[in-house]
Nucleic acid binder design. Structure first.
Length: 808
RNA sequence: GAGGGGAUGCCGGAGUGGUCAAACGGGCCAGGCUUAGGACCUGGUGGCUCUUGCCUACGGGGGUUCGAAUCCUCCUCCCCUCACCA
């Protein structure tokens, strides 16, 4: 049997669009459901089957929820600013705007062909000035609150991108986009967003998120909260703060190490040691070419000494390559007896090692223990000593308890054209002056020259402006924003995408948000997904929204690998194009197949044999609907269908789509063996199929005489099993469980006089003793019965629907 | 080094105390249909007996239990993320 998939698909896609079946209603009494897939960067390459998978996973949830009676918001948009468009401009002269809008058009038509239930009327593009205007607006608000600021700082610079990279965009010292390009360190004046202002809240909020455990762990790790003590060391009459989590080891400090990148390093280097330190710094930068993790510790004496506030001892200060400049205070106290790194360093430079914690043996003992050689604190346990020593020093004004984070402020400056212009004007008199709100958006100039650094710098008519404050000659900021800025709040714009008065209407945002289900790759765990949360908290503090987290449930889709198990890529020639597959097999076949391969969060492999199997199934459905008589159901089939309804519903709710596809297969397999079935049952089958294979569901729904959309119909409810049946069910279970225990024991030749059966109170109430027959005498108890006979304490093993049994 | 996740038949992967030799795919085998088939249909797919039955199996050891793939414990191995965070 041949099915004209193309015709069927186009027909229903057109009808859905004309009838606005998937438009989200801003005013509805229904409960809302906001389903969002991470919006794509529209590359000219278009999308392959792997991208399709992502959208199909979301679509199943959105369609399912809609049929369940939810008012569903399921939008799509494009993260359109960014490097590839600019690189295309440099390479073949296509203006970024043209490149982007072409790519977007291509994406839209490809996504429509997948039959995804988007509300296209809400489409957004971040390259649209009406969108990035609000990026600028948020920036101004942050500037106003002191959360956007400039500082000179060493930044990661990719020579290929010729721009700054965020820490998260540096992978093993290489650029995330150019695996072969080493990131260089440059010192530039950059714009930062003070995400650290929210570090504590970002950290503690993680626990309450319904997100994958792994992702939560990664974020916690990234934010890296740790508690410790900041101790002041006297160096040349000045107080230098040192962060430590082990104040209990203060008596074991025999040296200090300052980071080679510390901004105030040279304050400590004495003239005699200058040369030596310089030599070391040179060596460090050349050595850093190698694998950083295997670097040996290196250092040099600065010539200065620090006074240990606990002992009054003078200890030498070294400069070292293993101390991070931007964590803690950029300088550490060296306790070689109780820290592995300090131990290594001390051994190498013959620094004394003094044990102050009793325990362990051999090299550095890093555990907790009893203090020794620690003056009045001897005999105290580490855990207590941490408190006491901190207290003792703080009474002298030399220490305080502090919390440290690994999280750094977010550097958003990019020396690139195709990004959101930072709305700042630099004036010689007034400094950095914000562009007045009424002048937003600051629109990117169109006539620019690519290829020589940042094109904005050479566009004189754009750069040169008057200062908004004093009207003297001034220049625009030429840095643009990291594209992650654009994606940090887009979920809110979907709730009110066309508003040109405000960033969004508070009421609408309040109704739709937060996002109920967010689907996207786990690679964003420490980038987008942290910025997303940061922006949400900031906008909340502005009073625009009244929730704390953008996303309730987060889901990471698995990857689709090419046939043979390798990543799909053009160079490997294993890319599967949805349009090709759609013509040959039908897009519903592909949707069903993708989801039947593995659970949504697992990786899967494309296979020719596999899609053929799926096609067989789809054809079978068609055949069945062609030959089956619309009439009556058999009792058996009714029961079977009922069971499938409840299973499929449960599986979709729990994101076990693969198991749902298996149940569907069994259902239609069974249906194909029936001579006749009721119209209602046939409709039910199609409703269950609809989220997975919407086009053919619509087609067959129409064929059996419906004029509406199955997509608009309501999800079937499994009929509850009758009370009476539930009773019988319990009786049966009790009998079965008791029998299996008795049998097992009798086989072992154990003599059984009597069986005691324990049921949870609910089951006990349902159970009818008189209907149970066992080969031995027996008694039934409720687990709640305090008087019950239970010498082996078996009753606690009873579970709902499952009795516990004791025999003697 | 720190954190997270895993280990089931030829393969992918269900299953979380009895109904498990283990769903469902894929592969493979046999038969049917066919001029032929990579198309379709049916059955089989740990071992021995081949009907009932028995043995061996869910990474390895130990334990709890009348009973464990499923619970506890130790071990081994694999994957992912961060990585000298003081």
């Amino acid at each position: 049997m041949e099915i004209d998939f193309e015709t069927i698909q186009k027909k229903w896609q057109k009808r859905w669009e004309e009838a606005e079946v998937f438009s989200a209603d801003d005013n509805s009494d229904k409960p809302k459901f906001y389903c969002l897939e991470m919006f794509p960067y529209p590359s000219a390459l278009g999308l392959h089957m792997g991208h399709a998978l992502n959208y199909v996973i979301g679509d199943v949830a959105a369609r399912f929820k809609k049929m369940q009676g939810f008012n569903v918001l399921h939008p799509m948009g494009y993260d359109a600013l960014g490097l590839p468009a600019e690189n295309a401009a440099i390479k073949d002269g296509t203006p970024p705007e043209e490149y982007t809008s072409k790519a977007i058009q291509n994406y839209i038509s490809q996504q429509k062909a997948l039959g995804i239930s988007y509300d296209w009327s809400r489409m957004i593009s971040t390259a649209d000035p009406s969108y990035y205007k609000w990026d600028q607006w948020i920036f101004l608000k942050m500037f106003e609150k002191g959360l956007a600021y400039q500082k000179k700082s060493p930044v990661n610079w990719c020579p290929k991108c010729s721009t700054v990279l965020a820490n998260e965009q540096v992978v093993n010292g290489k650029c995330w986009r150019h695996e072969d390009t080493k990131v260089k360190i440059k010192t530039l004046k950059q714009w930062f967003l003070k995400i650290t202002h929210y570090a504590d809240e970002l950290y503690s909020g993680i626990d309450n998120l319904d997100w994958p455990i792994k992702t939560k762990a990664m974020q916690k790790n990234w934010i890296g909260k740790s508690h410790g003590t900041e101790i002041l060391f006297d160096i040349n009459g000045k107080k230098w703060p040192i962060f430590t989590t082990r104040p209990d080891t203060i008596f074991g400090v025999t040296f200090m190490v300052i980071s080679a990148n510390h901004p105030n390093l040279w304050d400590l280097v004495t003239p005699e040691k200058k040369e030596e330190v310089e030599r070391l710094l040179e060596k460090i930068t050349s050595v850093s070419e190698k694998d950083i993790s295997k670097l040996e510790k290196e250092g040099a004496f600065t010539g200065s000494y620090a006074k240990n506030p606990a002992t009054g001892e003078m200890v030498p200060i070294y400069v070292g390559n293993f101390v991070l400049a931007d964590y803690g205070s950029g300088m550490v106290m060296g306790v070689p007896a109780h820290d592995k790194r300090d131990f290594e360093f001390a051994k190498k430079y013959n620094i004394p090692i003094r044990r102050v914690i009793d325990g362990g043996s051999g090299e550095a003992f890093t555990g907790d223990g009893i203090l020794i050689n620690s003056g009045e604190f001897n005999g105290m346990h580490s855990s207590k000593a941490k408190e006491k020593i901190t207290q003792w020093l703080s009474e002298k004004g030399l220490a305080k308890k502090v919390t440290q984070f690994k999280l750094r402020d977010w550097g958003i400056s990019r020396q690139r054209y195709w990004g959101t212009p930072i709305p700042i004007i630099h004036c010689k008199k007034c400094g950095a002056v914000p562009v007045p709100e009424k002048d937003l958006p600051v629109v990117l100039p169109k006539e620019v020259v690519f290829g020589k650094g940042n094109p904005l710098e050479t566009t004189k008519e754009w750069i040169n402006v008057k200062c908004p404050k004093c009207s003297s000659d001034a220049k625009r900021e030429t840095d643009t924003m990291d594209t992650f800025v654009n994606s940090s709040w887009y979920f809110l714009r979907y709730t009110d995408p066309k508003n040109d008065e405000k960033i969004f209407d508070e009421k609408k945002a309040d109704y739709w948000c937060p996002v109920d289900l967010y689907i996207g790759g786990s690679e964003h765990a420490c980038t987008h997904l942290i910025y997303f949360r940061f922006y949400t908290k900031f906008l909340r503090d502005l009073g625009l929204i009244n929730f704390d987290e953008p996303v309730i449930k987060l889901f990471h889709q698995g990857m689709l690998l090419g046939e043979g198990g390798e990543r799909m890529s053009k160079s490997k020639g294993n890319v599967v194009e949805p349009s090709t597959i759609s013509k040959e097999y039908g897009i519903d076949t592909a949707r069903y197949f993708l989801l039947s391969l593995a659970e949504p969060d697992k990786d899967r492999e494309w296979s020719k044999d596999g899609i053929n199997g799926a096609l067989r199934f789809i054809k079978k459905i068609f055949k069945t609907f062609h030959k089956i008589e619309i009439g009556k159901d058999t009792e058996d089939f009714k029961g079977f269908l009922n069971e499938k309804i409840s299973k499929i519903t449960k599986y979709i709710e729990n994101f076990r789509y693969r198991l749902a596809t298996i149940e569907l297969k069994e259902l239609f397999e069974r249906l194909s063996a029936e001579k006749s079935a009721s119209r209602e049952s046939l409709e039910t089958c199609l409703k269950l199929l609809c989220p997975f294979a919407p086009h053919i569901s619509e087609e067959l729904f129409e064929k059996i005489g419906n004029s509406g959309f199955v997509s608009n119909s309501s999800w079937p409810l499994a009929k509850k099993v009758e009370k009476k049946e539930e009773k019988e069910d319990i009786n049966e279970k009790v009998q079965q469980a008791a029998n299996s225990v008795i049998n097992a024991l009798q086989k072992k030749d154990r003599e059984i006089k009597k069986a005691y059966i324990y049921l949870i109170p609910k089951d006990f109430a349902l159970c009818q003793k008189e209907k149970i027959s066992l080969p031995v005498k027996f008694e039934v108890f409720s687990t709640a019965d305090k008087e019950k006979y239970d010498p082996a304490n078996k009753a606690k093993k009873a579970r709902p629907g499952l009795p516990a049994v004791f025999v003697e």
